[in-house]
Design a protein around this nucleic acid. Structure first.
Lengths: 209, 209
DNA sequence: TCGCGATTTCAGGAATTTCTGAAATTGCAG
DNA sequence: CTGCAATTTCAGAAATTCCTGAAATCGCGA
């Protein structure tokens, strides 16, 4: 690797961090390199900058494209593909959130739903299902919230962020106004467990050894 | 592994998911098992339930304790340690957020700060630093926001979540109200929003000292 | 179509992580 | 202190993931 020290430090850090983020070292390094590069790079330039094999770079770019974190850009008079990261960091944040949700949250949500549909066959299963329902409820709330704020334009999102917890005061005030206007209480009871009871009971006995 | 099918499916899922979450299979399984267990389990019970070695369970519990995701509980008349997860899912969410931030975000933030303090030695480094500054700015905004909402009680937090993007409308309205009554002065200290409002549309390099 | 440079695929070796059994340690009751 | 059960440590085996070079494939211009 032969890069200006500042850039090298950045690239190496992303490489090391990669493992904590569920990506491998090379992928982290490629991303970091593209992120700070002033113009799109072709694969060979990356090979040279990072000192890894051509095929490794090819696979890394592949993975980053699957994550929507790098894009192909064609440079005039050059037959080779060139690669960049989205320029706007907010855009990157959105992509990251979306992809991590897809990989880390959605599968669990769907497994939980499936398990909650089955009829418990014992007291232990009944209790477990209640716990799963709690987890499911929380995740669903979070993803609903995410779906909501995802739609906001960047500028509004930034405003919300900047407000931070002061938003809570707003909510408090609004609450008062609302409860003054309505004598009815608003929180609908969540009989989540009832909702799930009484489904089909698939055998689903996957053994693992 | 010899568990009721529902529980087994849950445990296996967490085991498989573990790798995407940066923990290993056994750790994921132990966590899942404790999460759905109606009472604290001792290490041998876990060994039997999951069919892994005693030492593996010991290491897994160790890691989960480092994550603050399981706690030791002493059962009367039993010399062995027993383990549980925090019961409240919101509590779990807080712990998770805190720990992931500590492991995945803070190190990068500190590296970025360090790199941004160095004088760039070339045009390439200057550009890279500008990009790093953008990234640093975004991460700092996010962590500031997180610090803020972290302090909210669970109930308020849940309210905010439930509001979702409707909060944006609130902000919008408040914005108008504020700008209508612009002559009144607010506390100058909490004007973080204004600081960012200016430069957000263009990701021009906002400098960070 | 052919030729050729760019790119991807893939088998297998290297590196890393996970898991285990045996040995060491801890801590408590007698 | 001794003995013993509970627990942890740790070296190396097993499993998994990462990386490479060689070969296959692609894509485009002639």
């Amino acid at each position: 690797m032969n890069l200006p020290p500042l850039i090298q430090a950045f690239v190496l850090h992303f490489g090391e961090m990669g493992s904590r983020w569920g990506i491998n070292r090379t992928v982290g390094q490629i991303y970091a390199l593209l992120y700070v590069s002033p113009e799109p790079l072709n694969a060979d330039a990356i090979v040279e900058a990072l000192g890894v094999s051509r095929s490794n770079v090819s696979m890394g770019l592949r993975e980053l494209q699957a994550w929507n974190l790098v894009r192909v850009r064609h440079v005039p008079d050059d037959r080779r593909d060139h690669f960049t990261t989205p320029g706007d960091v907010w855009e990157i944040l959105r992509v990251l959130a979306e992809e991590r949700k897809k990989r880390e949250v959605d599968p669990t949500l769907s497994v939980l739903r499936e398990l909650l549909m089955q009829a418990p066959a014992s007291e232990a299963e009944r209790h477990a299902q209640a716990r799963m329902a709690e987890m499911h409820g929380l995740i669903e709330q979070l993803t609903n919230w995410y779906e909501d704020v995802r739609k906001l334009e960047t500028e509004r999102l930034a405003q919300l962020l900047a407000l931070g917890s002061r938003v809570a005061r707003l909510v408090e005030v609004t609450d008062k106004v609302v409860s003054l206007g309505r004598s009815r209480k608003k929180e609908p009871s969540d009989d989540r467990s009832a909702e799930w009871r009484g489904g089909l009971n698939r055998p689903a006995s996957r053994e693992k050894k």
